[in-house]
């Protein structure tokens, strides 16, 4: 039973991580890319770690995975914030939709 739950969680995690990567390619500018990377990857990595906890129980691996999850939720936004702040202070503008410009031409 635990194996089944673990595998479901693992698949969910892989799906979200994959979507995060797709977002990284599709989004137009650095800030939107960071949004895609932080949001999808937290749940993706979170459920992969949760799968590790469910499959191994209270063992060395499980407890380490739990600690890693806490660190992930603390570190991922902090790193993204550092990147965004650096991008902003180096003067990168926010991307805007180009609808109006197209009509003018």
């Amino acid at each position: 039973m635990n194996d089944l739950i673990g595998q479901v969680l693992l698949s969910v995690g892989l799906c979200f991580t994959f979507l995060g990567c797709v977002g990284l390619v599709r989004m137009p500018d650095v800030y939107c890319r960071l949004q895609a990377a932080t949001k999808c990857v937290t749940l993706g990595t979170g459920s992969i770690l949760l799968a590790a906890i469910v499959m191994t129980g209270v063992s060395g691996t499980g407890v380490k995975a739990a600690v890693c999850m806490v660190f992930l939720f603390l570190n991922s936004p902090t790193a993204a914030h550092a990147l965004a702040r650096a991008a902003r202070s180096s003067g990168i503008k926010v991307w805007q939709k180009q609808d109006g410009a197209k009509k003018d031409i």
Partner: peptide
């Protein structure tokens, strides 16, 4: 957080890219 992930996943896979940053 869970809601954020699903909304972001929807924004990424929908073809029109519904964003207005």
């Amino acid at each position: 957080m869970a809601k954020a992930n699903f909304i972001m996943a929807y924004r990424i896979i929908s073809p029109g890219l519904p964003i207005n940053p």
